[in-house]
């Protein structure tokens, strides 16, 4: 169970916090969609759940224990901007190696071509980079995967491919999935549960 227990969080200390005493539970095997208009803190919640931000009060527990402060986090976040999630000075093979050994089957399933491995991030398109980010996150064997607008920058066909991959992976691994998307049709198609924020 991935749990946010009555968390309070905001960016500026003086302002009203974005989340006050907020709780959320995600069970393994679930696909929870976070639904809210732009600017209501969907991405912030994703960052809190993945340990990128620490709540002012309350805590985030993964399978009963707090998120580790070092080592591989059992909650992995895939973001909206893959070009910001990779080191621009590393070739893609090095970026993938951050997660350890990535199996060839995984690369094939995501449609990552061998010739892309020697390239730098600026030599790949957003859709191609996002595949690398997904491969890297999945190789960490996360118990929970957070997909924050992972397909917003992609055309419909690539979006369908990436989501088919993620759904297959989730079915096999039994992990929990939290997703954010601005497309109601995609949420209907993918999510098992919707959570309205704000």
């Amino acid at each position: 169970m991935l749990e946010a227990l009555s968390i309070t969080f905001g960016y500026a200390k003086g302002d009203k916090p974005l989340y006050e005493d907020y709780s959320l539970e995600v069970a393994p095997g679930e696909r929870v969609a976070l639904v809210a208009p732009s600017g209501r803190g969907k991405t912030t919640l994703c960052r809190l759940l993945a340990g990128y931000e620490r709540p002012w009060s309350g805590e985030v527990l993964c399978d009963g224990s707090p998120l580790p402060s070092s080592g591989t986090c059992p909650v992995q976040l895939i973001g909206q901007h893959p070009e910001l999630a990779v080191d621009p000075r590393l070739r893609m093979e090095k970026t993938l190696a951050e997660a350890g050994d990535v199996s060839d089957e995984l690369l094939a399933a995501l449609g990552i071509r061998q010739e892309w491995m020697r390239r730098y991030p600026h030599e790949l398109s957003g859709g191609e980079l996002q595949r690398f980010c997904i491969a890297r996150a999945v190789t960490c064997r996360p118990h929970y995967l957070i997909a924050d607008e992972v397909s917003t920058m992609l055309d419909a066909l690539t979006q369908a491919q990436i989501w088919h991959f993620l759904l297959n992976w989730q079915a096999e691994s039994g992990a929990g999935l939290v997703l954010v998307s601005h497309s109601p049709a995609l949420v209907e198609r993918v999510a098992t549960r919707k959570v309205l924020i704000g």
Binding site: A108, A109, L110, G111, R113, G127, E128, A156, L157, T158, Q159, A160, Q161, W163, H164, S183, A185, L186, E188, R189, V190
Partner: peptide, 19 residues
């Protein structure tokens, strides 16, 4: 491939995986 239609990832020219 649109979510409100088939959400199919099959490109007829290039069966997945493609790019």
């Amino acid at each position: 491939a649109l979510p409100e239609h088939g959400f199919s990832a099959n490109d007829q020219d290039h069966p997945i995986p493609i790019q």
